[in-house]
Design a protein around this nucleic acid. Structure first.
Length: 370
RNA sequence: GGGUUCGUAGCCUAGCCUGGUAGGGCGAUGGUCUCCAAAACCAUCGAUCGUCGGUUCAAAUCCGAUCGGGCCCA
């Protein structure tokens, strides 16, 4: 572990992340209050994920906005490594991307990196990652993206389109770059070594500026992409980063698709959600009810409260009430959990219905190679 | 193609030299305690020791073959 006591890489997140330090470490820019105002002015709306710092950092978002105000549209790109079912942490950047698409009326590309998960997970077969790619696509579509302006790229399926772009990128990245960025060693398979060039490819799929909303852990891929973009005569991709969504079991680390009990999947039933939250969600409460009434809870480390803040309670006034009541001891941890369970289950009821409908829509979303 | 090294529960690993059917850590599960969770403390589950064959009264342990992983060389 580094001197900073936290680790953030595309494959591993650990420790209590200090996001201000991470901004310095990664060399990104904090989303300033001026930038927030500017976005609000352009979109006419103050998105809670921006207001609350769920999206906290960016690279050259200002350039994207400059161009947009000149009348030059950009496009959006994000993705997912299909190593398992979708969980609610994945939905954060996707929902925000949906909002961006609505507000700016722009195209969206969603990349499913079935090859990369096959390379990086020893026990997954290509058939399995492909299967998860389709499952994950359903969750993405369920969020309501515009089918006219949204295309889903599956790496192994759309390689014909991706490969020529990836080749341009690959020629400009040498082994030292990837080793330094990702910590590759002699035992890393060569699929991984090449892979970052495929993840770069959608950045250049249209001849326009691109904005990528994503979890900050994925930033290193695009650091490389940004380095080489000018060398192949392209614009650097701009990024907007969200914080890591904590695992149910605690503030350290992030929600992981392979950690069953620390994770709420989009396919979980109401009783599974209830059970997982009650049985596993880390709380900021006191050891017993008397102390809790007296000393109050700590919402800042309470995972249930954090889920409300990050995702499930967009209403600031309601969130504030929960915060204050929990902090004062008026609201018990069990009661806070009940609020969250209700919120998640009513969200999932709608989502799961849309997810089923998405099965019929998937064909029109899938990218077709020319 | 040559060399070398490794293969023990979900993960990490002891034991192999000096044969007597496996021990630990993490994790998981249950309980106590909590308004929950965590922590703590109890308890439980979990391994045909990669596979096949040989030697032996007896093999994870010795021998052979084979499959799989890693590294080096070509």
């Amino acid at each position: 572990m580094s001197a900073d006591d936290f680790i953030v890489t595309p494959w591993h997140v650990e420790g209590d992340i200090d996001y201000d330090k991470l901004i310095k470490q990664f060399g990104t820019e904090k989303i300033s209050s001026e930038l927030l105002e500017r976005i609000k002015k352009i979109t006419g709306e103050d998105h809670f994920m921006l207001r609350r710092g769920i999206f906290f950092s960016h690279r050259e978002l200002t350039r994207i906005l400059d161009e947009y105000e000149k009348g030059n549209k950009f496009f959006l790109y994000t993705g997912r490594g299909p190593s398992g079912h979708t969980h609610i942490g994945h939905l954060v950047p996707w929902m925000f991307a949906k909002w961006l698409q609505d507000k700016f009326d722009v195209n969206m590309y969603f990349q499913l990196t079935d090859d990369e998960k096959f390379y990086s997970k020893p026990n997954l077969t290509l058939d399995e990652t492909k299967k998860f790619a389709y499952e994950n696509a359903l969750d993405f579509i369920a969020l309501g993206f515009n089918p006219e302006k949204t295309k889903i790229i599956i790496n192994t399926k759309n390689i014909k389109t991706l490969y020529p772009i990836a080749a341009e990128v690959a020629k400009k990245i040498n082994f030292s770059n990837t080793k330094a960025t990702f910590g590759f060693t002699n035992e890393t398979n060569i699929g991984m070594i090449f892979y970052t060039s495929l993840q770069s490819a959608p950045c250049f799929i249209e001849d326009k500026p691109v904005l990528i909303p994503l979890g900050v852990d994925q930033d290193p891929h695009f650091r490389l992409t940004r380095d080489i973009a000018p060398k192949i005569g392209k614009q650097k991709p701009a990024l907007i980063h969200n914080i890591m969504i904590p695992s149910l079991e605690g503030p350290g680390g992030k929600m992981s698709a392979s950690d069953e009990k620390g994770t709420i999947y989009t396919t979980d039933s109401p009783s599974e959600v209830k059970n997982k939250i009650n049985k596993h969600a880390f709380s900021g409460g006191q050891p017993d009810i008397e102390q809790h009434r007296k000393l109050g809870g700590n919402p800042d480390i309470d995972v249930s409260y954090q889920y409300l803040r990050i995702f499930f309670e967009p209403d600031d006034a309601k969130l504030k009430t929960v915060y204050e009541d929990y902090k004062s001891g008026k609201l018990l941890s069990g009661e806070l959990k009940a609020i969250l369970i209700e919120k998640i289950n009513s969200f999932l009821a709608v989502h799961q219905e849309n997810r089923e409908k998405a099965r019929a829509q998937i064909e029109e979303f899938l990218f077709e190679d020319k």
